[in-house]
Amino acid sequence: MSDDRIKMAHGAGGSLMRDLIGDVFVRGGGDDPDVVGPEAMEDGGAVRVGDRWLVTTADAHVVAPAFFPGGDIGRLAVCGTVNDLAMMGATAPLGLTITVVVEEGYGRDELRRIQASIDAACAEAGTRVLAGDTKVMGKGEVDGVVLSSAGFGFADRLVRDRGMRPGDRVIVSGSIGDHGLAVMSARHELGLGDQLRSDVAPLNGLVARVLEAVGADLVGLKDATRGGVSAVLHELADKNGAGVVLDDVALPISDAARAAGELLGVDPLVVANEGKAVLIVRPGAVDAALGALRAHPLGRDAACVGEVIADHAGRVIVDTGFGRRLLAEPRGEPLPRIC
């Protein structure tokens, strides 16, 4: 089969998606020091306005099922957008836009529930929807409901992807894998009940605390969405020509996520989070960063989980406590194993 057709794997946040973006959507650019454009492949773009940066981001949301344990597509749209802005250093989002594409026959009550979630998440993040658009498509032309969102806000200092160096430490802001495994469990009706809930949450308040505590010692910041912590660390390792060693024993993974992961044969490190950040900090700032994170309700389980090394550029190594192995870079959608 020809490689010119887009497959589902091209949208899964791994290296295939990065290849597609580099091949089709991003050609050239990057020569204006006052602009961060799509060629930088960061969480958002930015333009310099006076002595500040105006940060913007765009996101589309196609989660199935649209309502899942711990959240729904409306909350996801707001949090995803707010978090992308926060990861660039813009922690006070000025406003969002939300476009709703809905399938003929979809329930008005479901739409109301989604809108209520949007309102609640905006209140939590301290922002608002400034504009929107509604489109209806014919039966079968779209699967239920699709949301597309954008957001903007100012950052005094941009947090970029290219500041990490050997010796820096890797911190995660809390337990990992919950969102992806909760959605997979719901999608495939694994019947894990209420134990596994999505972590979808706006991280701007949490990030603001960390920036206040460690300032320029925070040298990398990404939300671990599609492709999970693994995709984020591979991207950072690749962009900075460094390696990363992760301490498996230190990784905060809930018992429910661990169990679902073992059941499905899916590593919690490669599934999406919607309320977790990966932070790269200078070694002297670890305690201050952890202190700031753990003082916030969304960062209580924050942990230092690894270190940046000079060797093994572009690779992520897991120290399992028994031995060492490579961490897989997610490529396509994780498929559950057969036995």
């Binding site: 044969g265 399992t320 028994f322 031995g323 060492r324 192995r325 036995c339």
Partner: peptide, 16 residues
Amino acid sequence: CGTHEQAIARFGLRSV
């Protein structure tokens, strides 16, 4: 057994 190879690899046992 592929599950054995998975476990051996996943825990990094081959490296030791």
